[in-house]
Structures are given as C-alpha cells and as structure tokens.
Computed example of a mutant assay.
Amino acid sequence: MVISAPDGLGFLASAGPALVWLIVLSFVFIECAVILGLFLPGDSMLITAGIVLANHSSGTGHVWALSAGAMTAAICGNQVGYAIGHRTGNHILARRGGKYLNYTNLHRVNMLLERRGFWAVLIARWIPWVRTLCPLVAGAAKMNHAKYTVASSIGAILWAPVLLLIGFYGGSLLDRVPWLMPAVLTFMVVLLLIGTTVGVWHYRQEMARPPEEVAVEEVRD
C-alpha cells in the first residue's frame, strides 16, 4: 500500500495511511480538548487527509474507518474540554491582550451558550476558534452535561467525517488529471505544515501574555 506522491512529499509514500491516522486523530482531539487547538488548522487538515487517502490504493476503506475514528476523537475531545472547564469553576484564565484567548471571545461564547444552548454547541463545531473554546466555557458555565453531550456529539458526526469525505471524493476527481493531483496535494500539505508551524508560534506568543481571570456566567437550562 503506497501513496503516489511528488518527490518533495516522499515521507507520505513511506509512512502510508498510518501517518494520516496519527495526524488526523491527534489534531482533532487537541482541537476539541485544549487551548492549543485554537491555533491548529483542523478544517484544512481533514480535507488534506481526505485528498491523501484518495491517492491511495485502498483509500476508500481507510477514509470511512478514519471518519469513524475522527468522529470518536472529536467526541472524546469535547468531553475532556468540558471536564477541564468544569473543574476550573466559573473563572477561566484568559490572556490580557490575547488575539483569541481573551475576555471578549470568552464572553461571546458564554453569551452564545446562554442564548442558544443546544444549537450553539452544534453550530460551534463549524467555527474554528469557537470549536475549541465552546467545551471549556460550557463546562465552566455548568451547562447541562447531557444536553451538551448530545449536541457536541451530533456536531462531531457532521464535522470530521464530512470534511474528510469532501477531501477524499474531491481528490478522486483530481486524480483523473495526472498533473493536477500532485500539484494540489503538494499545495495542501505545504499549507498545512505552514499553518501548523505558525499556529504553534502564535500559541507560544499567546501563552506568554499576562493571565487575566474571566468570570463565566452559569448557563440556565
């Protein structure tokens, strides 16, 4: 089982689907569970993984199995994020002057949960920075755990598998044009690597800012 990749991406050919599985499950879990996920390119990673698997001889079986795995990783990550928020109480440490982890964004998520509840958790899955902050704020705001679990699980089902399959079936169409697949695959992987590197750098910059305690209002059922 070998992935046909351009010379600059030879590591994909040697690693095969195992590397794709490792990256996808790690990124999805981190993005749903901890603050570092604010800075990771989760959506583009899932689409890129689908394209990579489309260029693999047994990609169909892998992409459906990975869709189930990514969905599970997202659900587990949501629960970990909720638990972390719940343990912090109603005060969350933000960063003074932070770009993402700041009072304004935490307050916005808190108000969204207060006004929309179930639907806010469902919709948050499709908004990158809200996707990471929502479990944390929901836990700190003592949102009903059963309602949160149902909403976040449905969101996970509609997020990770959908993006993976878009990448996979889109990649299958690209594969019909010999020169187009390597070009798109190279572009997507390079974009993912740059996005991850920049994201980690931004995370370090954000965490270096002075902490600021933000009070979270309890979400009424």
Rank of each mutant, 00 (worst) to 15 (best):
P6S: 14
Y203M: 07
N90I: 08
I123M: 12
C76M: 13
G85C: 10
V214H: 03
G97K: 03
P210Y: 01
L106H: 01
P17R: 12
T196W: 06
A74W: 06
E218T: 13
W179T: 13
H107G: 00
K147L: 14
P211M: 00
V52H: 02
M207I: 02
P135E: 03
T48W: 01
V190S: 11
Q205W: 01
Q205N: 12
F118D: 04
G167R: 10
C76I: 15
V24D: 08
I92H: 02
I157P: 04
A208T: 03
M188S: 15
T186G: 09
I84M: 13
F29G: 02
T132G: 05
H107R: 13
M45I: 13
A15Y: 07
T197H: 08
G195Y: 07
L136P: 01
V189F: 09
I75V: 15
G50M: 04
T197Y: 13
D7M: 07
L106S: 01
L22H: 06
F29Q: 03
E212D: 01
V28G: 06
S67M: 04
E31C: 10
Y100S: 07
A215L: 10
E31G: 05
W159L: 14
G59V: 12
T72K: 00
R204L: 14
E218D: 09
E217A: 13
A151T: 11
P135S: 04
H202Q: 15
P135D: 02
H62S: 10
A13G: 15
N144G: 09
H62C: 03
A49R: 01
G97T: 13
V109I: 13
L185V: 11
N144V: 08
A208E: 03
L93S: 14
Q79M: 14
I30A: 08
D175C: 09
F187K: 05
L174W: 08
E213F: 00
R176T: 12
A120K: 04
T149M: 13
V177D: 07
G69Q: 06
V137N: 02
G89D: 05
L180N: 07
A183Y: 10
L164T: 09
A5N: 09
R87Q: 12
H86C: 08
G61D: 10
L25K: 10
T149K: 13
F11Y: 10
W129A: 14
I194T: 14
L122A: 12
L106C: 05
R115L: 01
L38M: 06
H56K: 00
V63L: 10
P135F: 02
I166H: 00
H145Q: 14
D221A: 14
Y148C: 03
V109H: 02
H202M: 11
L158D: 09
I47D: 00
K99S: 09
L112K: 09
L113S: 01
R115N: 11
R95T: 04
A183C: 12
L133H: 07
R96M: 04
